[in-house]
């Protein structure tokens, strides 16, 4: 009975005559209103707004801005947040300040278009100019490279250890245009003994991203 009702409803929805009279989002609203609300404590988080493709996101209250640098490749920028008083832990928002080559951009675009997967060596090689040495064994101990979604946006995640700093590193590469050439990065770095401790903060922060 219920399924028949849905079928009927679907037909109605697709009928243009009904579009003018019925709210398109009625059911979505209804579903949203069903959701239990989270505890108010979440709202004490600091809010980060308008960084590249990120319209908004929140970080736990203990975190704060730690440094900001502009001028990478003339137009790039780096904004860093860190938990107060804790050295060797930070979350950075980075743009290299210039587009990558169309060849690398196409490769990035292709990698993201496929279903979520662990990247092959060939795929990583094709992305080399974008990865800042993260697939170079001399510079980075790469543990995993895979694609996945953050709030509906397909991204590339690389994890491993930066050999120069010794910091555990997770970098999210975000396609900011539609051609894979403008690449935004979010990088979480922490000393080995602190990495897991602050990981949940970073997880929450990344989950809170509202994309533009």
């Amino acid at each position: 009975m219920r399924e028949q009702e849905f079928q009927k409803e679907n037909n109605n929805l697709l009928s243009s005559s009904n579009l003018a009279n019925e709210s398109l989002f009625a059911h979505v609203r209804e579903e949203i209103m069903k959701a239990p609300l989270s505890p108010a404590s979440n709202r004490t988080a600091i809010s980060i707004k308008d960084i590249g493709q990120i319209a908004e996101m929140s970080l736990p209250g203990a975190w704060g801005p730690s440094q900001e640098k502009n001028g990478f490749g003339a137009t790039g920028s780096y904004k860093e947040f860190a938990p107060g008083g804790v050295p060797d832990v930070h979350l950075g928002f980075f743009y290299r300040g210039r587009q990558i080559s169309s060849e690398s951009g196409d490769s990035f675009n292709r990698v993201l278009k496929g279903s979520p997967h662990q990247l092959s060596k060939d795929e990583l090689d094709a992305l080399s100019p974008m990865l800042r040495g993260m697939n170079q064994a001399e510079l980075f101990d790469l543990k995993s490279a895979s694609t996945g979604d953050i709030n509906g946006k397909r991204v590339l995640l690389l994890s491993g250890t930066n050999l120069a700093s010794g910091l555990e590193t997770q970098t999210i590469f975000i396609e900011a245009d539609r051609e894979g050439r403008v690449v935004q990065e979010i990088e979480y770095q922490a000393a080995q003994d602190k990495f897991q401790i602050f990981q949940s903060d970073v997880q929450k922060a990344v989950r809170s991203i509202v994309w533009k």
């Binding site: 001028g71 137009t75 790039g76 403008v182 935004q184």
Partner: peptide, 15 residues
């Protein structure tokens, strides 16, 4: 525009 036009963050500067 050549730099990516602020789509991924960034700011203008000397070049």
């Amino acid at each position: 525009s050549d730099s990516g036009g602020g789509l991924a963050g960034g700011s203008g500067g000397g070049h």
